[in-house]
């Protein structure tokens, strides 16, 4: 359902700061696939998601979603099909708007926003119920500004907003990295709840999470996919096995970070 064909992304092309962030990426996902992405800092993981989401267009290659070439479709037009949760909890919600207004905005993703009232009485009830499924007690703060919520609560809300109208593709970019371990665990729990049968790409810096989640795994280094596994092969993988792959790639410095 997602086909990425020989994608190349070069930042600051033809300058002294030129950086080949993606160097010929090929990736194919089936409907319902959950891929975890690992790799050291600067490997190009975020750039890959940004190119899929349309934040940057690639210098070369094609991105095909559900048979449709979306390589040059602008970001805001893609978001009906491609939903995202960022690493920074501040990025996924509008801080100055309240919880239900945020949910209402997500509910309209991919639809035409007209001059109807943003949050109707029925919406209020519906959204409250949806938010209560997060099991965070957030349903009691529906008319509070999101800026008053903690990072974990905002990330959970962003997850809910990303999946409220089931997107074709969900992109998670280290979405628990900025949270304390306990909150991260809670958000991961919610992640597995909302990603049932949801085609998902999840970047993580945590090897255990990379193995625990998903049916596919890819490892990136210097803009390339250097290792991938799926199905049974992935199930058999261990953290140590992954660390060995890293060593072969020559990513010694990251060993400490990734253990």
């Amino acid at each position: 359902m997602l086909k990425i064909n020989n994608v190349v992304k070069i930042f600051n092309k033809n300058t002294i700061n030129q950086k080949i962030a993606l160097n010929g990426i090929d990736l194919e996902l089936e409907e319902g696939d959950f891929v975890t992405v690992i790799g050291g800092n600067g490997a190009g993981k975020s750039t890959l998601l940004n190119v899929i989401a349309g934040v940057f267009s690639p210098d070369e290659g094609k991105i095909i979603l559900d048979g449709k070439d979306i390589t040059n479709v602008p970001e805001h037009k893609r978001s009906a099909d491609v939903a995202r949760v960022f690493q920074d909890p501040m990025k996924g919600t509008a801080a100055e708007m309240n919880v239900e207004e945020n949910v209402a905005i997500a509910k309209m993703r991919g639809k035409k926003r007209g001059l109807g009232w943003n949050v109707t009485k029925e919406d209020k009830k519906k959204f409250k119920e949806l938010v209560s499924q997060l099991d965070l007690g957030l349903e009691n703060y529906m008319s509070q500004k999101v800026s008053l919520l903690s990072g974990g609560q905002r990330q959970a809300l962003t997850l809910l907003m990303a999946t409220i109208n089931k997107p074709k593709l969900l992109l998670l970019d280290e979405h628990t990295a900025a949270l304390d371990p306990k909150t991260a665990e809670k958000v991961l729990e919610i992640t597995s709840k909302v990603t049932q049968n949801q085609t998902t790409v999840m970047i993580t810096h945590n090897m255990k999470d990379a193995l625990r989640f998903g049916n596919k795994i890819i490892m990136m280094n210097e803009g390339k996919i250097v290792f991938s596994a799926s199905g049974e092969e992935k199930k058999k993988l261990t953290v140590n096995a992954l660390l060995e792959k890293f060593a072969i790639v020559g990513n010694q410095t990251d060993r400490v970070l990734l253990s």
Binding site: E75, G92, A94, E101, I105, M108, R109, R113, W117
Partner: peptide
């Protein structure tokens, strides 16, 4: 009235957090 509508709210989201707005399909 305007900023209470779906369209007007998308304007508020644009000013508040353009990245989020684009991720939610809003043409900022």
């Amino acid at each position: 009235w305007f900023f209470g509508t779906k369209y007007g709210s998308s304007v508020r989201a644009t000013g508040c957090n353009p990245e989020m707005a684009r991720a939610q399909g809003i043409n900022t």
